[in-house]
Design a protein around this nucleic acid. Structure first.
Length: 493
RNA sequence: GCGCCGGUAGCUCAGUUGGAUAGAGCGUUGGCCUCCGGAGCCAAAGGUCGUGGGUUCGAAUCCCGCUCGGCGCACCA
């Protein structure tokens, strides 16, 4: 069979130099060496754009991530989400999508009430009175800090009696703190969407009305229900609690209202990055959108769920619990291991994998972080160009005989460089930024190995020129890949 | 009980959509600085890919059972 295929093939010799049959199901083609080196001028010409494509055709896509409740500082799980979400957004931009990075604040509801009550309790304690943090309240030190700040800024309310004012103040303070930490991590959002705006704009009411009109709701035991089982949910969901339970909407309603606004804002594609502990919301949000009957497709929005981050310190697990108040924050990690290493670490594993963040290793032995390996390969390429007396911008493939790059490891290196655009497309398509890390690690390994086996400078002008082109191409691809995942590509280290 | 996600080297994890002899980092062992930057390179040891079936010329990858671990199954968010 293979012999028949091979005998009927008629491929140009300058592209395929050799064809061979090897075992069951395999026909080997040997690419002519000149074909591989053809990628180098392409890379130099594209520069920082090498790897970009337009498969997204400029279509809008909304990427929602972090979306932490303003009830405490960001923890390491949010950090993982920030790294993954930002990298996915970048991958989509690189492949031609028009990306909006969005952060959703749950600034309404019971938890905010609890936050306010917690701060009020701390205010009482500061005044020397007995006061307990309420059930479901927040115990972290930051609550006391906020209490102190409130007293300092609001002399007109020394007892903290003005609950709405305390609540507003606490939410504002925590939002500022979260924004500050995200900036320190290098993440920027285009849109901050407030849950409370869904109430003030009437979107929540509109959503309820729409669900009623579509005939999917009913009253039972004093509560208002949505018949989500019509759309494949395993049980119906309460929309509005009974009077005895407070009579408010459950979080489910604003969630649906919120995602409806995404659709109405023109996002025919929406991606949510969330912790896997929230995966039960996936079905509910989708089902709720179906029940609106406004033409939203079943798989909307898409979800990237990441597993929980476990932080190890001193051989023991550090519990992550916002309610308990003792957990590792994004700020702690950025301060200790730096933005580059933290981004790289948090992206190394695919989102589906549990992630064990060894704080001791990441802090004490930060010099051995894998991120330095890749960055070092980049500075090494920069170093060669410096020693050669040229600059990155001055290197050109024009008039250079690239067919001199015949070493086996040079061929392999060029093959890898040529695969970068496909890698970016695949990573974007699958929403898997960790693939970029694996690629960069491979490329750095190939480049470092090649560097040690062959000299660039002082091996004859023609070969030196050809190898400088290769060096520059490697540098470009390393820089582009690092840039893509939010890690710097230093000229010197 | 039901659902989702995992189980790959001592440890932490990849594995390019089903291909050839399963890879990397860290750790262990042994080499390499007269040399463009040693945050580096080369080599060795280390594997029943949780387990039992199935599909296929071919399975870590796809299907089913079992098992272990994590998470989720509210008129909480």
């Amino acid at each position: 069979m293979a012999e028949i295929i091979v005998s009927r093939l008629d491929l140009p010799k300058e592209v395929v130099s050799k064809i061979g049959i090897a075992g069951p199901g395999f026909i080997n083609f040997w690419l002519a060496e000149e074909q591989l080196s053809a990628v180098l001028p392409v890379i130099l010409r594209a520069g920082s754009s090498y790897g970009r494509s337009s498969v997204g055709k400029g279509q809008p896509v909304n990427v929602e991530f972090v979306s932490a409740n303003p009830t405490g500082p960001l923890h390491v799980g949010h950090g993982r989400q920030a790294a993954i979400g930002d990298a996915i957004a970048a991958l989509l931009q690189w492949t031609g999508w028009k990306v909006t990075r969005e952060f959703y604040y749950n600034d309404a509801g019971a938890q905010i009430t609890n936050l306010g009550l917690s701060v009020q309790a701390r205010i009482q304690q500061l005044r020397g009175r007995d006061a307990a943090i309420p059930e479901g309240g927040y115990h972290g030190d930051y609550v006391r800090d906020i209490a102190e700040q409130y007293l300092a800024r609001h002399p007109e309310d020394p007892e903290g009696k003005d609950a709405p004012a305390v609540r507003r103040f606490a939410v504002q303070a925590l939002r500022e703190e979260q924004d500050h930490d995200l900036r320190a991590f290098g993440v920027k959002f285009d849109v901050y969407f407030l849950e409370s705006s869904l109430y003030t704009s009437g979107k929540v009411e509109q959503t309820v009305k729409r669900l009623d009109d579509a005939g999917h709701t009913y009253e039972k035991e004093g509560a208002s229900w949505l018949r989500t089982t019509d759309f494949g949910d395993d049980k119906d969901r309460v929309m509005r609690k009974s009077a005895g339970k407070g009579g408010e909407y459950t979080y489910f309603v604003p969630d649906v209202a919120y995602h409806w606004t995404k659709w109405e804002r023109g996002f025919r594609r929406a991606i949510n990055v969330q912790g896997a502990d929230h995966h039960s919301t996936v079905t509910r949000v989708r089902v709720g959108l179906q029940a609106l009957e406004v033409g939203i497709p079943q798989g909307y929005p898409e979800y990237v769920l990441h597993q929980i981050v476990t932080v190890m310190k001193g051989g023991e697990e550090v519990k992550i619990s916002k309610r308990a108040g003792s957990y590792v924050t994004v700020r702690d990690l950025v301060d200790q291991v730096g933005q580059d290493a933290m981004r790289y670490f948090l992206l190394m594993r695919k989102a589906d994998s549990h992630f064990v963040f060894d704080l001791d290793l990441a802090t004490k032995q930060s010099e051995e972080n894998p991120v330095y390996y890749v960055q070092y390969a980049h500075t090494r390429m920069a170093g060669i160009l410096r020693t050669a007396g040229t600059t990155a911008g001055a290197v050109t493939a024009d008039g250079v005989d690239l067919s001199l790059l015949t070493e086996a490891d040079e061929q392999e290196l060029m093959k890898h460089l040529a695969e970068f655009p496909t890698l970016v497309e695949r990573a974007a398509e699958n929403l898997e930024p960790h693939r970029v890390i694996a690629y960069l690690d491979d490329l750095a390994r190939l480049a470092n190995g090649w560097y040690h086996r062959h000299r660039v400078i002082g091996v004859g002008e023609a070969i030196e020129k050809a190898r400088l082109v290769l060096v520059r191409a490697v540098q470009i691809v390393l820089a582009n890949g690092l840039n893509l995942i939010g890690v710097t590509a230093p000229e010197r280290m």
